[in-house]
């Protein structure tokens, strides 16, 4: 449990002269869900994108390291990156439908992804996909495989995105606002499904979200980001019960609560 899987030190990144992520350090342990919360513009997504592929997102790096096993993620070559991402590290975004080709069937897209990583085993792979679909509570997996993203609802597409991300059983799973575009009832279901998957697959996860409720439900540890810096990082229970930084306290107070007492 205590083994460190990802170690980020003094990461500094931004766009042009704008520094968006400022000297951020944190580590993610094996089998841990690590949350990064904050408001819009605090740099949480840029931080995650810098770990995924800074060049593709036009992010400039000004320093720092991010070690995943022996790989330094910030200075990977293209071929190393291709090898690592998808199989060892995978990600899911707010709107999964937009990460897929809109008018090609999921069957073709899954096949292509698996082939490009050398994991394609014909019917056995299809069985595996259907198995993961059932784990994320997608009924009628065969019908979904033959559908295109535009034919499914937002919640279903998001589940397919999650299924794709965990298909090759990655060690590290990066999720950027995976439930934010969903209705509240669907959000809760997807949160529960992600937790179930995590229990079964025992991988590590970085969850970036603005929703304190989702973070509190899922994460073992939470880092609060404000203006590019991590201002507080603690175990979830500790953060909720005794936060020290004034910004964290303000953030927690502002979360609307169900008024049950009269």
């Amino acid at each position: 449990m205590s083994e460190v899987l990802l170690d980020v030190k003094n990461l500094k990144a931004g766009y042009g002269k704008n520094i968006v992520v400022d000297e951020v350090s944190f580590s993610v342990k094996r089998n841990e869900i690590f949350g990064i919360v904050g408001e819009s513009g605090c740099g949480k997504s840029t931080l995650l994108k810098a770990l995924i592929n800074p060049k593709e997102y036009g992010i400039q790096l000004y320093g720092g390291t991010a070690f995943f096993h022996d790989h330094e993620l910030l200075s990977l070559s293209l071929s190393e990156r291709k090898k690592l991402y998808g199989s060892k590290i995978s990600m899911v975004f707010q709107n999964s439908a937009s990460s897929f080709h809109p008018i090609r069937s999921y069957r073709k897209q899954f096949e292509e992804t698996l082939k490009s990583h050398g994991f394609w085993e014909g019917d056995a792979s299809i069985e595996k996909i259907l198995d993961i679909f059932s784990k994320v509570h997608l009924p009628e997996g065969k019908r979904i495989l033959d559908s295109c993203p535009y034919e499914l609802s937002g919640g279903m597409n998001q589940r397919v995105g999650i299924a794709m991300a965990v298909l090759m059983n990655p060690e590290l799973f990066l999720a950027d606002e995976p439930t934010s575009a969903l209705d509240v009832t669907v959000q809760k279901q997807v949160v529960n499904e992600l937790m179930e998957l995590h229990k079964k697959m025992k991988n590590s996860m970085i969850l970036v979200t603005h929703n304190m409720g989702v973070a509190a439900r899922m994460c073992d540890r939470i880092a609060v980001m404000f203006q590019g810096k991590i201002v507080e990082c603690k175990n979830t229970e500790l953060l909720l019960s005794s936060s020290e930084h004034p910004y964290t306290q303000r953030l927690l107070r502002a979360v609307p609560k169900l008024k049950r007492e009269y």
Binding site: V184, T185, Q187, K188, V191, N211, M212, G213, V214, A216, R217, L240, L252, V255, K257, L258
Partner: peptide, 8 residues
């Protein structure tokens, strides 16, 4: 709906 609220 009430049950879906993720409270702190």
């Amino acid at each position: 709906l009430l049950d879906s609220v993720l409270e702190l």
